[in-house]
Write a protein that binds this DNA or RNA. Structure first.
Lengths: 163, 163
DNA sequence: CTCCTAATGATGCATATACATTATATGGCG
DNA sequence: CGCCATATAATGTATATGCATCATTAGGAG
């Protein structure tokens, strides 16, 4: 192994936005998981329930698109929420789609989780500064957009779905 | 469900940095996975092998710390790389720690993956602009730092490990 | 020299993630 | 009215992730 290789590897480790995106997602997910743990809720479960509460009756496909998650992943995650009685699904296989809504139990739990999220958010804002927190969120939105395979300018070697 | 609740949920969905960090990490990981798929390599496997190649002989604990990943997660991910014959581990249980290095096979694979990564990186830079790409990476580093439980200013309810 | 503490690695369990594939139902066309 | 192409959900398989816990080993105290 030459020094050239080692330097190349160090450069990549320091510059790869994908590596950093994963590391950051892991860190903030651990943070939120710890916050929500007393409620028996994970960060991702909270996000999905918020997404459903924000648009009751949303279909599985719509929610998957807005969350940037594969429909098969969302299918299983929603099944978990259904098992716990927090989410109710109307409809199933077929063109109509599976329409999602919060149960009374789910709505109650989410009401308890809201102040927990607000405190966690306030703490992040205090540590990083509100301007910087908004800036990083918007920057991550922009990065996700250009990384999407459905972006109008796909990289070579990444096939576009024929529509 | 009142309109107040729905608006609150929409605000949270639009403002939560954790949700966006996960969505962005998923998107860019899908992008890199597609790039590395012809090599039989995942984005995370690439990142770990780059981390090992950048500091041969690094211990499992050190690599976990630099990658911001739990040691138990890294333990299993490294086992996967060992099974494939890309990584060699010297030492094991005990205070000495498990020292990691690339095998000849792993080094060869990584050499093939380097130009693939560079092209993917160049494509991202072209789409987002190099300044913006560097900005978002640095912003994510900052977010990860303040979200770490080991941060000097922990949020209430998140215990610090007694050292 | 022996024992014990602490650091380290691995495992059990649960959730999360996505590609490939299968199962199902529906809307439209003949 | 019946069939089928297509949209949708679910499942099989594999990787990734982390907490709680267990297993192992080395370093130090006595």
């Amino acid at each position: 192994m030459s020094d050239v290789d080692r330097d190349a590897f160090r450069t990549i480790a320091a510059e790869c936005p994908g590596f950093q995106a994963r590391a950051t997602a892991r860190a903030i997910t651990r943070y939120h998981n710890a916050c929500f743990r007393p409620l028996g809720l994970t960060a991702e479960q909270f996000s999905l329930m918020v997404g459903i509460g924000a648009a009751e009756g949303v279909t599985l496909v719509e929610l998957a698109l807005s969350a940037g998650v594969d429909t098969t992943t969302l299918s299983r995650n929603i099944q978990n929420l259904e098992k716990r009685g927090w989410v109710y699904a109307d409809g199933g296989r077929g063109r109509a789609g599976k329409r999602l809504s919060l149960t009374a139990s789910g709505h109650h739990l989410l009401a308890e989780a809201l102040p927990v999220w607000r405190q966690a958010q306030a703490e992040l804002s205090r540590r990083l500064g509100n301007d910087q927190l908004q800036l990083v969120r918007r920057a991550m939105v922009a990065l996700a957009v250009v990384a999407e395979p459905s972006s109008p300018t796909a990289p070579e070697g990444v096939e576009q779905p024929v529509s």
